[in-house]
Nucleic acid binder design. Structure first.
Length: 449
RNA sequence: GCCCCGAUGGUGUAGUGGCCUAUCAUGCAGCCCUGUCGAGGCUGCGACCCGGGUUCAAAUCCCGGUCGGGGCGCCA
């Protein structure tokens, strides 16, 4: 929507939500809002059908209304002596109007009210919550992230795939699955496209990606976990962990660059809101390439130097990540984890040992500050090593034949990763909770709306 | 699964055993004024999560439940 100066005198028809309806006498002001902006509609009782005028004047906030009228310059506000007049603004001088759908009152959550609404109430009324400008902007940014990420991967030669979400057995292991009945057969909701994207690569698709849901039946209750989340996943043949780390950092760099260049308006809307809450602006700072690599060995040293209680072979926990984040506040990779801490399908190279002599893997994480964004790695493509890995972890290879059978007929070395879309959005939007950037989140206690 | 905290009108809050016939804001209804502009003025409406218990007296203390928040574990 332009500021309207070039449209003065033109007849227009506009429809939108009535953000406010003011004026109780012979005049009425309706602030109309749609996905592109807002404009004031000015109604005069004696300039239009009286019953229509009254229906508009008595309509409730957030009702949808259509108006037809002439674009005109607003009457300038009275300004005190010596104060310069503000720039001209424009409005629609209405000749006819129609209520498309009346909103019930009161609203369960105010769209422009001066009160902070709790997240839970907002999520119960997400369709109204999304009408708030900054919430709307967050979801438009989410769409941009998905678009730019997808376009970047396609440019790097990846093709998009879809894997089944109803599966017969665990496709990755290590997490609890949601059980379900598939007709008369017990089945599960997929926790990861891991196995299927590998099978696609083994089948010769070479470079694939998928943006899709994953389901985990973990009873976690944190700002960064959901039981259903959208994962940005890739898998690439003839690649090692370093190669796909390169894909990942280039993709994030591309997303940040394009948002910084083209979508600052969305970020500004978010910042306008943040300022009313006393929060600092979020700044889209394009990260420099390459991202820092802090191998597990070095990460352990940093944690120890920072006073953290940790030994080689321990997991790097959230409070340890705080110590690392104080040195590396932005994106950083943590590659070369101990093989003993990684799943059986992660590749290792014989002779690559950590500082205490333990076997290293080709698994890596990507963190932003304290938060894990991605986990990935080079996969083990040699079936006999896969089976040995299982035995080393006290697992029975026969129980994993659904996985290992795919590797019996030749397999390219390959690597991949899975990126939590909502976690990336948290970084971009400054949201303190993944639920902010997921339209209809599913957590431990929420299955509606 | 573990630890801590919380639940008051539609929404966000004040309230720490009697001053509560419960505060304020926002909202809603109505009136006045008005080409308003985060409009203004006046009047009104609307709430102590559920179930037990303690007490002369409970929004307030205790127990259980439900829901929510924060942290941890695990992960993306």
């Amino acid at each position: 929507m332009t500021d309207g100066g070039d449209m003065v005198g033109t007849q227009v028809t506009l429809a939108g939500y009535a953000e406010s309806v003011r004026g109780r006498g012979g005049v009425c002001f309706v602030m109309l809002r749609d996905g592109t902006g807002r404009i004031q509609a000015f109604l005069k009782r004696d300039a239009m059908d009286e019953s229509v005028f009254e229906s508009i004047q008595s309509s409730s906030r957030e009702s949808t209304i259509s108006v037809t009228g002439i674009v005109a310059q607003k009457r300038p506000p009275k300004t005190p002596e010596g104060v310069p007049a503000p720039p001209p603004e424009y409005e629609v001088s209405v000749s006819s109007a129609e209520i498309l759908a009346l909103a019930e009152a009161p609203l369960p959550v105010g769209v422009v009210d001066d009160v902070n609404v709790g997240l839970d109430v907002r999520l119960d009324n997400r369709h109204l919550d999304v009408r708030r400008a900054h919430v709307n902007a967050m979801f438009q940014l989410r769409s941009k992230v998905l678009q730019y990420g997808r376009e970047h991967l396609i440019e790097e030669g990846f093709s998009e795939m879809n894997s089944p979400k109803i599966i017969a057995s665990a496709s990755e292991g290590g997490t609890n699955l949601f059980p379900m009945m598939y007709f008369d057969t017990p089945a599960y909701l997929s926790q990861s496209p891991q196995l299927y994207k590998q099978l696609a690569v083994l089948g010769g698709l070479e470079r694939v990606f998928e943006i899709g849901p994953a389901f985990r039946a973990e009873k976690h209750d944190t700002y960064r976990h959901l039981n259903e989340f959208v994962s940005f996943d890739i898998e690439a043949a003839w690649c090692d962990d370093e190669d796909v780390m390169g894909v990942l950092e280039r993709m994030i760099h591309s997303i940040w660059s394009r948002i910084s260049a083209d979508d600052q308006d969305l970020v500004d809307i978010i910042n306008t809101y943040r300022h009313t809450q006393g929060l600092e602006s979020v700044i889209v700072e394009v990260p420099e390439l390459p991202f820092p690599r802090i191998p597990y060995d070095d990460a352990i040293k940093i944690v120890k130097e920072g006073g953290g209680d940790i030994e080689w072979g321990d997991d790097i926990e959230s409070h340890h990540c705080d110590l690392i984040a104080s040195k590396y506040p932005g994106f950083h990779f943590i590659p070369r984890w101990p093989m003993s801490m990684k799943p059986f399908y992660i590749h290792h190279k014989e002779g690559e040992m950590g500082s205490t002599g333990g076997q290293l893997s080709r698994g890596f994480d990507l963190n932003y500050g304290r938060d894990e964004m991605t986990s990935g790695g080079q996969r083990e493509h040699r079936v006999e090593v896969l089976e040995q890995n299982l035995r080393d972890m006290d697992l029975d290879p026969d129980d994993f034949s659904f996985y290992t059978d795919g590797f019996r007929y030749g397999a390219p070395p390959h690597a991949g990763w899975g990126l939590g879309v909502a976690r990336l959005l948290m970084v971009l939007t400054g949201a303190g909770n993944v639920r902010e950037v997921v339209l209809f989140p599913r957590d431990r206690s929420r299955v509606t709306p």
